[in-house]
Design a protein around this nucleic acid. Structure first.
Ligand SMILES: [Zn+2]
Ligand SMILES: [Zn+2]
Ligand SMILES: [Zn+2]
Ligand SMILES: [Zn+2]
Lengths: 134, 134
DNA sequence: CTGAAGATGTTATGTTATAACAATTAATAA
DNA sequence: TTATTAATTGTTATAACATAACATCTTCAG
């Protein structure tokens, strides 16, 4: 839910540094990995990273991968729905991609709705093999 | 994937104790909560619980909720598909339910397949309000 | 300017999970 | 049975992930 890619508010110093680290990474980063990368730029404590990540996730500029305790920059492909987000995580090469689809979003709400449940936020993480590794 | 509810192999002592703790709980339990409950029965270290949980998850008798770092007994409703599992997690009362659906499973594979991804295992966790709390 | 809200810095602590190794028990086969 | 192997258990220590609490500083509307 609340997925607003490509909508960068004015980021603070710490938020900018963390966002830059996520953008230049080729895959998900843990908060502590980010911290290590930014120690040379003055960051010293986990909280400085977690606070920045909280905001970036709130702004829709980053996502948390629950199954990996890690974070990625939003790579929302243009032309795809912004409704719901799913991630594919290749177990061979570690590549993570972000996909979404209106139809799937509706299916998901329908599935839950059938059980009387009103979905506000979803975590969908798919493990398997990417095209290159298959 | 590999969801085999109601297929209990012969469990070992620790596995049985952990499974019993999950079954009598009304919701998800963290490994450390399980440990505390089973200290009186002789368990002393986190690994004893984690090892049992690993097996129970492998057997399909329990599930790990990635977004909560917690575990639940499989409550797979009879008559539902065993293909893929989704969880609803009520943000008001904490109730967790397990649902699955063949159509949704196909949709999910199709969505990923469209991106060239072959899904082997999925994590779907839905947050919102249950019927009673809505 | 001034007060309120937000962001930062820092220390300490809480929570979740695994490494490494020794000992024991269960299953299998000669 | 007995040797061999595989699985499970027990234990200590440590790694990895996340937040509490509090003081300080910055931003910005009124
Ligand atoms: Zn995104
Ligand atoms: Zn791959
Ligand atoms: Zn189940
Ligand atoms: Zn509820």
């Amino acid at each position: 839910m609340e997925h607003f890619p490509h909508t960068p508010p004015n980021l603070t110093k710490n938020q900018s540094m963390v966002m830059a680290a996520l953008l230049k990474a080729n895959g998900p980063l843990s908060a502590y990995t980010i911290l290590d990368q930014l120690r040379s730029k003055g960051l010293r404590a986990p909280l400085q990273v977690y606070r920045a990540l909280d905001k970036l996730v709130e702004y829709g500029m980053a996502h948390r991968l629950e199954s990996m305790n890690a974070f990625v920059a939003c790579r929302h492909p243009d032309g795809e729905s912004e409704s719901m987000v799913a991630f594919t995580i290749c177990e061979s090469c570690g590549e993570v991609t972000e996909i979404s689809n209106d139809g799937f979003d509706r299916q998901l709400h329908k599935l839950a709705g059938g059980a009387g449940f009103n979905v506000k936020k979803s975590t969908v993480e798919l493990f398997g093999q990417c095209e290159a590794c298959a």
